[in-house]
Nucleic acid binder design. Sequence first.
DNA 1: TATTGTTATACTCTATAACTATA
DNA 2: TATAGTTATAGAGTATAACAATA
Lengths: 137, 137
Amino acid sequence: MAVDRIGFLLKHAYLAYEALAASKYEGLGATARECGILSQIHALDGLSQLELAAELGVDRTTMAQLLDGLERRGLISRTPLPTDRRRNVVALTPAGRDLLGREAAVRAEVEKEFLSVVEPHERDAFRAALRAVSGRF
Amino acid sequence: MAVDRIGFLLKHAYLAYEALAASKYEGLGATARECGILSQIHALDGLSQLELAAELGVDRTTMAQLLDGLERRGLISRTPLPTDRRRNVVALTPAGRDLLGREAAVRAEVEKEFLSVVEPHERDAFRAALRAVSGRF
DNA sequence: TATTGTTATACTCTATAACTATA
DNA sequence: TATAGTTATAGAGTATAACAATA
């Protein structure tokens, strides 16, 4: 009975993760996806919107919309680069840094619960395999 | 630099699979997803649309639309069940069976290429982990 | 009344095209 | 002319609500 197609399994694994995360991130102030963006901004400081978009594998128009939401809530700032005023340097605000700090525990709990059905000694290998098949990301 | 969030990795793993499959399934006559539906119809013969939808984890309205496409191309048939004429029994047509047969090699190639970046001795474990985390599917 | 399937509609996510400003 | 960012729009994919047929 079980569907054993990798595409199907990946899709439903992703949907299962999203559903779990959506419930656990409730009330935090940002979705799991938004926190991922904040995290990249934190890790790679000083990137422009376009560079950030490339880093995260999304279109620049999608990036603009995502940043709109984060900026509206005071989590990030956009500052034109003095040497090339076409580029917006994206940075975390104190509120953004604070939220990212509070997210760590939530994410740890989500990942722990999500991976609880995988054999403990297989968890690192599973993560490594995901990294490998997900391309350069 | 690498993003190590499971949600992100799952999403991009899924997108990578879809992109690879889209190119390899070109010209076959059905998408990877549609072949997955044909495959379930083949495996669990005699199911109604609603039962099939539950089996595949989609809404009945989504199922109706997907089956519309498959029926229009002559790959499946819908027959009211004599004992309960509200239910449409879904079955493969000869053309559907034929296409499913031709798909096997394509899917094998896609999965092989997709998993080529995973350590050979980790591939079965990876698939097992995916089955586990993707819930009941 | 409840269920199955259909249709119309709406929502989310994403990208393409056209625009503004800067280079 | 080319690039960064924005905005309007459109296309997938999905679900909710309303409806018809059947139970």
